[in-house]
């Protein structure tokens, strides 16, 4: 029984590791400028955690294999070094490991989150609401019209509650359901929630940020590859949470200009 158990643990450990090593399921290819360092940090952690996982399971299995016998009259033995050795070992190995991960991870985090957006970053506002994202481009004047919550009316497609009759800034704001951006251009995304907590998650962009109702947060990124990607909500927001999404279209600058014109005409 004990030997079977030991073998089971080893088989499970190896079987668990295979899909990771073979990359059977892996994160999609990165399309952002800041993504590669996150991916590196990820694979580094994967290697360290994987070794720790396999080592611990193997040692557990081997000890179960070796010592699960009645052995009447036999004396118990102590692992050389005892608890002191283990504690020192844990402090040294795990301590150094987590310190390394922590320091490098902090650097990655700082690179992503603590750097200000560039001066030429293109501002786009995204508004999350039950259960859709809407995007707003400031138009030629570069200014976003003020949001009047009492004017928000989805049945007339006034998703942002902008005052088109009285507010001059509102005339050229372009509101879309799709998020189109030019490739290789830094985007400064201003995040606003209309109702509840939502989240903005694009796997390929390595971007993930919650919307905070009552507080506008922003993030910035640069996409490097043309294509169509999914934006999904990851913060439970109600019954339609599973279907709260939008599409990110990374286009060439020409296509984007064309698209924007087309959208402006449709307003």
């Amino acid at each position: 029984m004990a030997k079977l158990f030991a073998v089971t643990i080893i088989v499970i450990a190896i079987a668990s590791a295979i899909p990771i090593i073979m990359h059977t399921w892996s994160a999609p290819e990165d399309i952002s400028i800041h993504g590669p360092i996150i991916d590196d940090q990820m694979s580094e952690t994967m290697a360290e955690a994987g070794i720790a996982f396999l080592a611990a399971q193997f040692v557990l299995a081997i000890f179960i294999w070796m010592f699960a016998k009645p052995n009447p009259g036999g004396k118990i033995k102590k692992f050389p070094g005892g608890a002191t050795g283990l504690v020192i070992g844990a402090f040294l190995i795990v301590g150094i490991e987590v310190l390394a991960l922590g320091v490098f991870g902090a650097k990655v985090w700082a690179d992503v989150y603590l750097s200000p957006p560039g001066a030429n970053a293109m501002p786009v506002q995204v508004q999350a609401g039950q259960f859709a994202f809407y995007f707003r481009y400031p138009g030629p004047d570069g200014k976003f019209a003020a949001i009047h919550p009492n004017l928000i009316d989805e049945s007339t497609e006034n998703f942002f509650g902008i005052d088109t009759t009285n507010d001059p800034d509102a005339k050229d704001d372009i509101v879309t359901a799709e998020f189109a951006i030019p490739v290789n251009k830094e985007i400064h995304l201003l995040m606003h929630s209309k109702d509840l907590g939502h989240s903005f998650y694009v796997r390929e962009l390595r971007v993930h940020q919650d919307f905070v109702p009552g507080l506008d947060v922003s993030l910035h990124f640069t996409a490097t590859k043309i294509g169509k990607y999914e934006i999904v909500c990851t913060q439970l927001c109600g019954l339609g949470h599973y279907n709260m999404k939008a599409y990110l279209e990374v286009m060439s600058q020409d296509d984007f200009d064309k698209w924007l014109k087309q959208q402006a005409a449709a307003q």
Binding site: I12, T45, V98, T234
Partner: peptide, 28 residues
């Protein structure tokens, strides 16, 4: 013994979630 095995398996994934940079990919 199964507890130890499970605790190890669940524990190592904590390395990932403890790091804010990786949490960008794995959160939620």
């Amino acid at each position: 013994l199964g507890f130890i095995s499970m605790f190890v398996s669940g524990g190592v994934s904590g390395f990932f979630l403890a790091q804010p940079s990786i949490d960008i990919m794995l959160h939620a």
